[in-house]
Computed example of a mutant assay.
Amino acid sequence: MGQPWACLRALILWMVIEMATRRRFLAGLAVSGLIPTTGWADVGAPAFLSAAGGSDGTYCLVGLTDRGEPVFQIPLPARGHAAAAHPNRAEAVAFARRPGRFAIVLDCATGSVLARLDAPKGRHFYGHGAFSADGLLLFTTENAYDAARGVVGIWDTRTYRRQGEFPSGGIGPHDIRLMPDGETLVVANGGIETHPDSGRAKLNLPLMQPNLTYLSAEGEVLEQAELAPEMHMNSIRHLDVRADGLVGFATQWQGSTADSPSVVGLHRRGEAPELLSATLTQARAMDGYGGSVAFYEGGTRIAVSSPRGGLVQLGDVGARVVDSQLNMPDVCGLGVSDGALRASTGTGAFWAATATPTILTQQPVAWDNHLVRVSRG
């Protein structure tokens, strides 16, 4: 019996050594970034991410096809606003609705929570974030509420630990995007001062100064742009960026509805921002509220949604004019698939937003504010 036991002990010792060697090998690969990662194709190749709420009071993040069909659904602890999709890995950061103090990093292949981002003391998130081009950093818009200033948080995505922050260039930073150069960030500073002790109350409307701020990844202010002084109550909130660097923005008017201006605009660096021309009837129909914005048809056209108005207004980018609108109850999320416009609503509908809008799918959820495009390489 001695020889078999000796062989068994030798086999066990070999397995232990082999596993230890394998662990060291994999650890080395992890450090070098050579371990194959789960990509978006491995989780059903979703076209969009959207937060959603169920009729039972639960919340989730959903991956959607171009037609609005769910490919995965992951629970969230509270209502979400928007998400950020990692450029390479099947990971998403789901942000709580403002003034949320947490964001959840989700493995979209397993549904597991990889990390929880907690805003530092004196900060809360604004519901949006953007990854660096290489995916190594995450940038988050935040409110330093006791100082009434905006900041951009920096997180290392290998550990999701906070690395620091820099000023956003204004008050109330909401949306943030990476520009096509892969190096510059653009931030929509809405200009509205809030404090969590006051809920969602707006504390500085007479003095607000919204702007677009272009920043380096190190926080250097490269350029700032403001609307005309009479538009200082037109809070710049949401963004889309065309491949050539033209920025589209959606605004939320804080003045009288009777005086509502257009709530969609364009900006190119080195020039003044401008709102698309809209008739008084068109402007009033949006109830002063731009919810999401998206370029479509190869960037020749732009759309802005209004859940309050139940409308999507469409504009000609070259002519800088709003030229039509689509009626969609409780619409907010906008996305683009092969140049064609898509929209999601709080009624659970996912629309092909064509000249004759068509509901592609209907789900038993309330889609939240945004459709976040997933890069599929």
Rank of each mutant, 00 (worst) to 15 (best):
V241F: 10
A250H: 05
T251F: 02
R242G: 05
L275A: 02
D244A: 03
A278Y: 02
S277T: 10
R269P: 03
E271K: 14
A278R: 01
P273T: 08
V263H: 01
D244L: 02
R242I: 12
V241Q: 05
V264K: 09
R242Q: 13
H238A: 11
R268C: 05
L246M: 04
V264Q: 01
L280F: 14
A250K: 03
S260A: 07
T251E: 07
A272Y: 12
A272Q: 15
V241W: 06
A243T: 12
E271Q: 12
E274A: 15
L276H: 03
V263W: 09
T257V: 14
G245S: 03
T251K: 03
W253V: 00
A258L: 15
Q254K: 08
V247Y: 07
S260H: 08
D259M: 11
D259T: 13
P273L: 03
A243K: 11
L276S: 04
Q282R: 04
D240M: 06
R242A: 09
V241Y: 04
L275C: 00
A283V: 01
R268Y: 04
L275R: 09
T251Y: 11
G265D: 04
V264Y: 10
V263P: 00
D244S: 04
L239Q: 05
Q252N: 11
W253R: 00
D259G: 08
E271G: 05
G265N: 08
A272H: 15
W253F: 02
T281C: 11
V263K: 06
V247Q: 02
E271V: 11
F249A: 00
A243L: 10
E274H: 13
